[in-house]
């Protein structure tokens, strides 16, 4: 008897996944984005094997060497070297680790704390709701990057602190989304039924209601993954994110600022890496939204 029920559950879950993939696959852009993203993960994981040089080794005979297709370029440094003779390609390859790390950590913190606060606000309403939502309003009243910048100034300029700051400024979006879904789910009959049958509040929050609120949250997670990468790079660019010689893409841009006119390649490639990564993730986000949340679909 119990076996049968497990079977049914497993099948529906698989069905859901297959169904989701069917929808997701129709969006060509999203699939391309997904392939790129998988490629990026592989690059990040196998960075030491793929990168031709160490990301922090300085070649003193090759300061500001241009990329291979420009005059004076060589195959030794395919994308050229920076002002202190480090191989740009290797730095970009290793940099992918930091960007993915930032995205994963920021989204995990923002998602888990945001869901928790949103569930509290949506379930208990009253003063709990008021306090949580007013705090979120305060966070939203400041421009996100400025708030993150001040937070990092308080916490100290490191990549970890930058991630915490970005997670805090992204918090309100998750809280608002969760709260709104929870409130609309709470008035549904299955919740009423669960309450009547004596399900306790924590179980009601996390097991009964939450799974039905996940679709918009997954979409938000994808979109804020890309925002996190952009913001971390922006903080790196302003000099308060990852510190040199870390091959973080934004920090690489900050180091290249003095040379933009006489050695533009030092600046061009890290920025391009940020751009295509963010485009790929946004493509996936758009695809997820269309597949998971037909209500939000942009016809």
């Amino acid at each position: 008897m119990s076996d049968a029920s497990i079977d049914v559950k497993a099948e529906t879950r698989l069905d859901l996944l297959v169904n989701f993939w069917k929808h997701f696959r129709t969006n060509k852009g999203a699939v391309i984005g997904l392939y790129f993203f998988i490629g990026l993960i592989l690059v990040a994981v196998f960075a030491p094997l793929i990168a031709p040089h160490s990301p922090i080794e300085q070649y003193r005979d090759a300061f500001k060497a241009p990329p291979v297709w420009m005059e004076g370029g060589s195959w030794k440094f395919i994308l050229g070297t920076d002002a202190v003779g480090r191989d740009i390609l290797s730095r970009i390859i290793f940099g992918s680790r930091y960007s993915l790390f930032v995205g994963v950590v920021v989204v995990s913190i923002a998602l888990s704390v945001g869901i928790f606060l949103g569930l509290l606000a949506g379930t208990f309403r009253g003063w709990v709701d008021t306090i949580i939502m007013r705090i979120m309003d305060v966070i939203l009243a400041f421009p996100s990057l400025l708030l993150a910048l001040v937070l990092v100034a308080i916490l100290g300029p490191t990549l970890v602190n930058a991630m915490i700051a970005i997670a805090i400024v992204q918090q309100p979006y998750y809280v608002r989304l969760t709260r709104a879904s929870v409130i609309s789910e709470m008035s549904r009959e299955y919740v009423m039924a669960a309450r009547v049958s004596g399900v306790r509040t924590p179980r009601l929050m996390f097991k009964t209601v939450l799974p039905n609120c996940m679709a918009p949250l997954i979409v938000q997670a994808a979109l804020s993954f890309s925002t996190a990468i952009l913001d971390a790079a922006a903080l790196g660019f302003l000099g308060v994110g990852a510190q040199p010689p870390t091959p973080e893409w934004g920090t690489m841009l900050a180091e290249s600022r003095e040379f933009i006119l006489n050695a533009p390649w030092i600046m061009a490639f890290p920025g391009f890496a940020i751009l295509i990564t963010v485009v790929a993730i946004n493509l996936i986000g758009d695809g997820l939204r269309d597949a998971l949340d037909p209500k939000l679909k942009r016809s």
């Binding site: 790079a233 922006a234 302003l238 841009l253 933009i260 006119l261 533009p264 940020i274 751009l275 485009v279």
Partner: peptide, 22 residues
């Protein structure tokens, strides 16, 4: 629009400077 929406503007600025000023 997607590319514009994803643009790291701290890179876009210097890139335009290289092209139009440089």
């Amino acid at each position: 629009a997607l590319v514009g929406y994803s643009m790291p503007i701290f890179w876009w600025g210097p890139a335009l400077i290289i092209i139009f000023s440089g």
